[in-house]
């Protein structure tokens, strides 16, 4: 059976610290996220913000793809030269879709670096990007609900969750996640989801031209405030207001800069120039 491709936001995927694999030979590995996604293959969509060559041969490439919640790291390996060349030829920033398998790097027990090994990459338009955000959000909401249902059960099993109507992959993932993740903060993910959706509900297509000056100013502010891991979102807003930009405009401009791939969120609540 072909593994389905999970539409999953970067922040949820990168939060995962648990991997399962059955004992059979050549059994696939699954990343279990705190909300119970059971991921072997991903469908990632976002803004391509950065592509770098890695390794001596110059064939392998590592790319960063920004979505409303964080950054997906994607590798194009030597055995997929067509994917590597698509990444190399794409303009930065642009919208990209990638299908990939989970790539798990565990330098030491309990430390997990998750990324994706690309099988397919393609430049796309804003409609496909927005459609993806809707799907990723809808799926995340199902997992939040499944997780909440599981938390209310005394001894949740995949079978019980299936009985509530959840698809088997979600039921299995949630039953596994609830065993290993203690006290998953559902509210944290609900806020994340709300922010992701507000990406679409607040229209900002027309602001791109109108706020050029503000964009310049905010870029300068971030540059002056940023350290290794970026500048605090709150501090940037405070500084921009001091410079006479309205708060709502500041937020719109920041999001638009992210969308353009000029800045990104290295971690939640921090902003950094690409």
């Amino acid at each position: 059976m072909r593994e389905p491709a999970w539409r999953i936001f970067a922040a949820e995927y990168n939060d995962a610290t648990h991997v399962i694999q059955s004992k059979e030979e050549k059994a696939p590995k699954y990343v279990i996220t705190p909300l119970g996604a059971k991921v072997n293959r991903l469908f990632i969509v976002g803004v391509l913000t950065d592509v770098e060559e890695i390794g001596a041969e110059g064939i392998r490439r590592r790319a960063r793809i920004s979505d409303p919640t964080g950054i997906h790291v994607v590798y194009a390996e030597a055995f997929k030269p067509e994917v590597a060349s698509i990444l190399a030829d794409m303009e930065i920033p642009s919208y990209i879709a990638v299908v990939g398998k989970t790539r798990i790097y565990e330098p030491e027990e309990g430390v997990l670096y998750l990324s994706a090994r690309a099988e397919m990459a393609k430049e796309i338009g804003i409609e496909e990007r927005n459609y993806w955000i809707i799907e990723a959000s809808r799926n995340m909401l199902i997992r939040i609900n499944a997780m909440r249902d599981a938390m209310n059960m005394s001894n949740p099993t995949a079978k019980q969750l299936r009985g509530l109507g959840y698809p088997p992959v979600i039921a299995e993932g949630v039953a596994e996640a609830i065993k290993v993740y203690k006290d998953v903060d559902l509210q944290h993910y609900e806020i994340m989801l709300r922010e992701a959706l507000s990406f679409i509900t607040s229209s900002r297509k027309e602001i791109k031209k109108n706020y050029e000056q503000e964009e310049e100013k905010i870029l300068k502010i971030i540059e002056s405030l940023q350290s290794e891991d970026g500048a605090a979102w709150e501090a940037v807003i405070e500084e921009a207001i001091k410079e006479g930009i309205e708060k709502s405009v500041v937020e719109e401009v920041i999001v638009s800069l992210m969308e353009k791939g000029l800045i990104y969120e290295p971690q939640l609540g921090k902003l950094k120039i690409v």
């Binding site: 459609y131 955000i133 809707i134 909401l141 609900e190 709300r194 679409i200 229209s203």
Partner: peptide, 28 residues
């Protein structure tokens, strides 16, 4: 190897993404 469907009809889906996003926010 993989379940194969012979299509009798197909169309590209268009959605009103704002409406969908608002609906999801309401559910949330």
């Amino acid at each position: 190897f993989i379940v194969t469907i012979f299509a009798k009809d197909a169309e590209i889906v268009k959605i009103d993404e704002k409406k969908e996003a608002e609906e999801l926010l309401t559910q949330l």
